[in-house]
Simulated scan of single mutants.
Amino acid sequence: MWFPLQLNMTFHLFIVALAGAGAAVIAMVHYLMVLSANWAYVKDACRMQKYEDIKSKEEQELHDIHSTRSKERLNAYT
């Protein structure tokens, strides 16, 4: 009488363990997806920061060139 009960309990524990393993796999896949999305975001932010730095330096150089030429023109007229 106890043998079928033990076999039934073993089957239920096997199903629970299988479900737990499936949940662990889903959790790992989710973790890897979040990790790769964050890495892409940081990489993109780094590239955008470099672009903004280069852009501001070029704008500053253009502003300096323009102000220098304006001063030269003013000096030429006086």
Rank of each mutant, 00 (worst) to 15 (best):
T78A: 05
H66F: 14
A21W: 07
T68Q: 10
S36C: 08
L18W: 03
G20C: 08
C46G: 14
Y41S: 02
R47T: 05
V34E: 03
N75F: 04
Q6L: 12
W39E: 06
I26L: 15
N75E: 12
A24Y: 14
E59T: 06
W2L: 08
I65T: 03
M9A: 14
V16G: 01
H63N: 11
F3T: 11
Y31K: 12
A37Q: 13
Q49M: 11
L18P: 00
I54P: 02
I54A: 01
K71P: 01
H30S: 13
Y77H: 08
D44I: 00
V29C: 00
Y51Q: 06
F14M: 08
I54H: 00
L18E: 04
K50I: 03
A45G: 03
D44F: 03
F14A: 12
A21H: 00
V16W: 04
A21F: 12
M9N: 08
R47V: 03
A19W: 02
R47I: 03
S56R: 06
Y41K: 13
S70P: 00
E52L: 12
Q49D: 10
M33Q: 10
K55N: 09
K43R: 11
A27T: 03
L5T: 05
M33R: 15
I15L: 10
A27M: 03
A40V: 11
K71Y: 07
H30C: 07
I65S: 09
L18S: 08
I54K: 02
A24I: 11
M9P: 00
G20E: 01
V42W: 09
A23Q: 02
A27F: 04
N75T: 05
L32M: 12
V16N: 01
P4K: 14
H30L: 08
L7V: 04
D64T: 10
Y77V: 13
M9E: 13
V16S: 07
